[in-house]
Design a protein around this nucleic acid. Sequence first.
DNA 1: GGGCTCCATGTGATTTTATAACATCGATGA
DNA 2: TCATCGATGTTATAAAATCACATGGAGCCC
Lengths: 172, 172
Amino acid sequence: MTTPEDPKADTRTDPLGFAAHDHGHCVETGILAAEERCSEKGLHFTPVRRKALEILLQEHRGLGAYEVLDRLRDAGFGSQPPVAYRALDFLVANGFAHKIERLNAFIACAHPGTRHSPAFMICRLCDSVAEAHATPTRGALGQAARDAGFRIERTVVEAEGVCPACAEKADA
Amino acid sequence: MTTPEDPKADTRTDPLGFAAHDHGHCVETGILAAEERCSEKGLHFTPVRRKALEILLQEHRGLGAYEVLDRLRDAGFGSQPPVAYRALDFLVANGFAHKIERLNAFIACAHPGTRHSPAFMICRLCDSVAEAHATPTRGALGQAARDAGFRIERTVVEAEGVCPACAEKADA
DNA sequence: GGGCTCCATGTGATTTTATAACATCGATGA
DNA sequence: TCATCGATGTTATAAAATCACATGGAGCCC
């Protein structure tokens, strides 16, 4: 965790959980976490896969597969859809990224390494996305599932709305 | 290798909330509710729209837009995608149906008339879908949104797993 | 080393899902 | 009457995802 002496040194205002932060840090630690976990688990963190994760980490918003593909192509990798989809599948399967169903888009995991059900907050005005933890077995859905005898294996929880920065702009 | 029965082929035990029920009732009351609400609100419940809702009501699973389109064509309506998408858009916009993002599919609302955030339980074995109520502002997501200052306008809550009927078959 | 298998990458082609753009037509009402 | 509007229809195209198959390198066994 970096604690910059001068908070104003950080000029980027990309929201992470809609809060200002040192964004270079995101990419760096995201890649490091993936490297570590891959070597632990014997997974092949190959160049395309690494690059795809890097691309996702660079933005706190959902990127379409074809947007990722464009950037992979620019980086010298293959130019056909399966190139992107396969890299993204790997990242999602191993918890380094998530798919946002509402957007048909992908985003780097904000809590890599921890076992979790993600929940997303998607700003419809600026497209930024924050990841929180969902607790699917608690709450109304969990109760309904228990009542019905339904075994939950995976959950999609996505909230659409307005992030604090955009709400503030709208007020002004 | 044995040839187990394909659970998706079983149409006799349509589950509603994964429970047996009088299915004719579903279609009938669904249509009636829509008629009533449309006349209340001055909405045009036209033949295509009515037929589309009927089609959705006939199944407790998600139907793709093109599946709906096929049946609309069979019923004598137009045969091009916008025909289905427009009817479905109307139904969704007015709360008579929902889109299931995980499946890129549509389903008739199980609680028409009541204002609610739907939550779905999707059986990955037989494709049946049950609708429950979500309480997005309670629970972890609501707390995260409040903490972040995010204003939730709409939520997608979808659980994938195994319905009681399929779980039982799997045990046997 | 030779050959083998496995897995990742690459490509072209296709399928599935969704929208754009524009014509027609009937109901409503000035 | 005729202007307007919303609904329906059509053709064409865009966007998202998958299929099928070829290549190529890493590790391994003999």
